[in-house]
């Protein structure tokens, strides 16, 4: 991997009802496999228990998110992503699977602010029920016109990931939704 890698929108930040910030380079590894059969290998490599449906589990310096019945997304240090792929591939030898470093395929945003305002800002641009989304659960949904995944690290801190090709669009949509004067005070 090139050491000159840049994230989708380096340093992009917008402040309004909440703060929207592009998080810079983030390591991401996608794993497709029979998840029940891969649970022990994933635990050994990441230190995280196999996440249940839609859950995110914290591991050693990484977190493991359930993406679909046969797919996990592992968020880790960018520098450690290749190592993660290597370790997963080794731990799953003999088992049908694919582990790929997709760090450059996506962009990640942090939204921080009051818990209610945060949910309002997101609710304006997604059909998902933000009031029902609790920390530890990842909701894959739609942000305006593009797919994205949303979860809460804590009550006042949300994370959004989307494809890198739509990073500017997602940032602008979130920043617009967070513009002062647009408070709806619903959540």
């Amino acid at each position: 991997m090139s050491d000159q890698a840049v994230s989708a929108l380096p340093g992009a930040e917008a402040t309004g009802l909440v703060t929207v910030r592009e998080m810079g380079l983030q390591g991401m590894v996608t794993l497709r496999a029979d998840l029940s059969a891969a649970a022990r290998a994933v635990q050994r490599v990441t230190g995280a228990a196999m996440p249940g449906v839609r859950r995110i589990e914290a591991g050693k310096g990484c977190s493991v998110a359930w993406m679909s019945p046969d797919e996990l997304l592992i968020l880790c240090d960018r520098a450690g992503a290749d190592r993660m792929v290597f370790d997963l591939t080794e731990a799953l030898t003999g088992q049908h699977h694919v582990a790929v470093n997709v760090s450059d395929a996506r962009a990640m945003f942090a939204l921080e602010g009051a818990p209610g305002g945060l949910r309002d800002v997101l609710s304006k641009v997604t059909p998902a029920d933000m009031g029902a989304l609790v920390p530890g659960e990842m909701r894959r949904t739609r942000l305006a016109q593009v797919p994205a995944a949303i979860w809460f690290e804590a009550e006042g801190a949300a994370r959004v990931i989307c494809f890198r090709s739509v990073a500017r669009y997602v940032f602008d949509v979130l920043a617009m939704s967070a513009r002062p004067g647009g408070a709806v005070d619903y959540h």
Binding site: V53, R54, S68, P127, D129, T141, R142
Partner: peptide, 12 residues
């Protein structure tokens, strides 16, 4: 039925 999400038509 796979992820249990009550998905709006526009997500499908």
């Amino acid at each position: 039925p796979y992820c249990g999400v009550a998905a709006c038509e526009t997500e499908l």
